[in-house]
Write a protein that binds this DNA or RNA. Structure first.
Lengths: 145, 145
DNA sequence: TATTGTTATACTCTATAACTATA
DNA sequence: TATAGTTATAGAGTATAACAATA
């Protein structure tokens, strides 16, 4: 346990507050209003390649039936397709479609643009921007511990 | 619109990714498993003082009926109480109880401790920690724009 | 007539349990 | 017998519409 008033702890407090507030602010930026955060997260998960339902459920920390329902909805919207595996016929791979990829790309661009605009508005110096980038790298290390 | 490859934009991209991942990681740390994120957020909102239902609904960006339900659940759990306003008898103030305050405090401590432990594990230098604190301050400015 | 909050109703997201098909 | 996925069912959380009480 860390002392309540050392640099480590006060950094943790500041960073927790800032992270929650910024995440909340950015989550509001969406390309498609009808797509929930949970559904969007699955779509984003599939950008780098197809995955079976079970793996998707584990990654998103939901149950298999929940992921099955989510995939139903995404498939009905034409954003993913089910592809039965050839070697193991119990398994079904989920692949993102071009329409799905387009939504992920547009949403990501929208969030990045909103954040870039916000940063621009404050006239941050290059030094401050580099501080933010370094911090971002540290934050990812911490999150993926 | 910013150029896709300038410092501003690449900072935005890095910061968006890092913010979402760290927020997700921290949200898993809870003092009470039975309390949902939405309910906890309302409780946290009330730490600094009592608020009417309508204000709570606006702050948390949910409808008034939804907030009414949430308050029902929190009141049933003994975490808040409804206090009718004296001057305007339509209005009801929601006040956090000692039990509610205890849960907020415990959860915040747990999240800060988890983050501090993670930071400690990486043996970040004081310079790196100060980078994170400065970044946190900038992030809050951006979030509260 | 406008405002504050609640009740009625319905839809989405989630989970556990039971089931089907395949290994 | 174990595994991958789906279906059945139920419980939370959410919204809009309609309502009651008060200003």
């Amino acid at each position: 346990m860390t002392e309540p008033d050392d640099l480590l702890h006060s950094t943790a407090v500041d960073l927790r507050l800032a992270t929650f507030r910024l995440a909340r602010r950015l989550r509001r930026e969406r390309a498609v209003d009808t797509l929930s955060d949970a559904h969007f997260a699955v779509l984003a998960c599939l950008r780098s390649g197809r995955l079976p339902i079970g793996t998707l459920a584990q990654r998103e920390r939901v149950s298999a039936p929940t992921m099955s329902n989510t995939v139903d909805a995404l498939a009905e919207a034409g954003l993913v397709i089910r592809v039965p595996a050839e070697d193991d016929r119990r398994r079904v791979y989920i692949e993102i479609t071009d329409a799905g990829t387009a939504i992920v790309t547009a949403t990501v661009h929208k969030r990045d643009a909103a954040l870039a605009d916000a940063l621009a508005e404050f006239d941050f110096s290059d030094t401050q921007l580099r501080t933010l980038r370094e911090a971002a790298a540290l934050m990812r290390k911490v999150a993926e511990r």
